[in-house]
Design a protein around this nucleic acid. Structure first.
Lengths: 126, 126
DNA sequence: AATGCATGCTAAGTCTGTCAAGCACTAACT
DNA sequence: AGTTAGTGCTTGACAGACTTAGCATGCATT
């Protein structure tokens, strides 16, 4: 079919690319992430992760990233080549795209502004 | 005292002890395990694992052990100090204000719009 | 121009998991 | 005794994750 269909066999998005996309989607710099993780992950290390120089970071690193970047932990584990406990939940990503919305990182002001804006959007389209 | 039998009833809590008990329960030698894993885990390494010299083996090592020794993968992961994916969902502790944000109900369009708007907000205030 | 700051990235080092080889001990068997 | 085989354990080296300090560019302000 035209384009846009996903070829499961091909894996163009490796761990680093996933992380980078999640981060840039949130408009965060590498140092922002470093801060958000409480210095748990240095910006230098992040750079190496995103550039693919490091392919198998420790799970606790992946966990920190998953919370900050709002990407499911299991996804990162899987992309890092780890076996995920057989409690495989394919449907865990029920809202896929919405999960990329890092609500965790919103300041109170930002959240308020976004809620206002969302309300505005919805009144507009009915 | 006077417990003529060794205290095997006590469930070991350390990773090394868990592995060792599982192995000896199965009457396997360290080299047996090495064989059973298809040389994936050397007997030398096993020795260090059981003696506690190595505390955080890679998940794929734990997985191999879990299958050979018939110990649940999650148990080993947990004992190695890794966060187990399934333990992630119930908590979701830190939200607080995030809960007020109905992310789950966002449509893809809305999310995109909000992300844009958030980017705009952040460029504004730096 | 120059100063400052933010961003991404690299260089060089440390730490630790992991392996291969070999050591030390025991139990059997000739 | 001597050897053979089985056990757990140690040692030395390597690889890769991870850190710290610093570089290079870009973008803005003075």
């Amino acid at each position: 079919m035209t384009d846009g269909e996903t070829d499961q066999n091909v894996r163009p998005t490796n761990l680093g690319q996933i992380i980078k996309k999640a981060r840039t989607d949130l408009q965060m710099s590498q140092r922002d992430v470093e801060e958000a993780t409480g210095k748990e992950i240095s910006n230098a290390y992040l750079s190496q992760l995103e550039s693919g120089k490091i392919t198998k970071p420790s799970p606790h690193i992946l966990y920190a990233l998953s919370t900050v970047l709002a990407v499911p932990y299991e996804t990162l584990m899987e992309r890092a080549g780890y076996i995920v406990p057989s409690a495989q939940r394919p449907a865990d990503v029920k809202h896929g795209r919405a999960a990329t919305f890092a609500v965790d990182n919103l300041t109170a002001d930002e959240e308020a502004a976004l809620l206002d804006y969302l309300a505005y959007l919805r009144t507009k389209k009915g």
